[in-house]
Amino acid sequence: MEFTLRALQAVLNGLLTGSLYALIGMGMALIFGVMRIVNFAHGAFLMVGMYATYMLYDHLHVTPYVGFLVAAALLLGIGVLTYHGLLRWVAERSHFMQILLTLGIALILTGGAQLVFGADYHKANLPLLDVNLHLGRHITINAPWLLSFAITVVLATGMFLFVMKSRFGRALRAIAQNRYAASLMGIHVVRTEALAFGLGLAAVGFAGGLLLPVFYLYPTVGDEFTGKAFVIVVLGGMGSIEGAAVAGVVLGVIESLTSLYWGNEWALTVDFAIFLGVLSLRPSGLFGSQRV
C-alpha cells in the first residue's frame, strides 16, 4: 500500500514536471519541424522568459501567473525579430552554420543576462509556494506545481490544435514538408517561419514564467533545459509537436520514477540512455511520426 502510494506520488510529481518539459519540448519541436533547425538557444530563451516574469514580479508586483503571458508575448516578438534578423539568413545554409548561430545566440543571451542582472540568482517567493494540497495521508501536491500543470495542459492543447487545425498550422506543415512547394501554394514562407519561430519561443516564454515560482533563476539556468528539450524532440519523433508533448510528460515521469527506484543520480543517465536508444533503434521517435 505504502509502496504503491509512493509510486503514485512519484508519477504525479513526474507529471507536474513533465508538463513543463512538454511545453518546452513542443516549442523546440515546432521550430525543428518547420525549419529543421535545432535551437541550441532554447534554454537561453527560457531564461529570458524567466527574467521577464521575474522583473514584472519584482518591480511591478505582477504575479508570475499573469507575468508568464507577458513573457510569452515578449518572446514571440523576440522570436520574430531573431528570425528576420538572423535565422532567416541561414535557413538554406548548412546545419553547421545554423548550430553555430543558435549557439552564438545562446552565448549572447546568457552573457547579456550576466551583465544586466548579474550572476546572482533570484527567486519569486510567492505565498502560494507554501501551500501544499493533501490527498489522503500520503499524497501531497505543491499548489504552484499543480497550477502550472493545469495552465500547461490548456496551453499545450491550444498549441496542438492551432498547429494541426488552423490555416496557419497547415501552412507550417506545408513548409516543413516542402518549402518550395509551399511558396508555390501562395504561402508566405518567411513570414510563416518567423511566426513559427516566435511561437516556439512563446512556448518557452510560457514555460519560463510558470517555472519561475517553483524554481530559481540565474543566467545559465536554461542550459540544462536545452538538452532536455532535445531529448524530448528526439523521443517525440523529430518535429512532431504532439509527440513532443507526450515525450515531455513521459520524460518527467521516467525521471521521477528513476529517482525513486534507482536514485536521482541516475535520472540524467536515463535521459541520455533514452536519447541514444531512440536515436539508434527508432530514429523516427516513439510517439509521433508526422512532421509538425
Binding site: 514536471t17 529517482s259 525513486l260 543520480e265 535520472a267
Partner: peptide, 20 residues
C-alpha cells in the same frame, strides 16, 4: 547513500526514497 544531480527543480522522488 544518495547522490543527486545538482540544480534540479524536483528532488521529491529522491526525498521520498530516503524517507522510506
Amino acid at each position: 547513500d544518495e547522490g543527486y544531480q545538482p540544480k534540479s527543480p524536483d528532488y521529491k522522488a529522491l526525498l521520498q526514497r530516503v524517507k522510506a
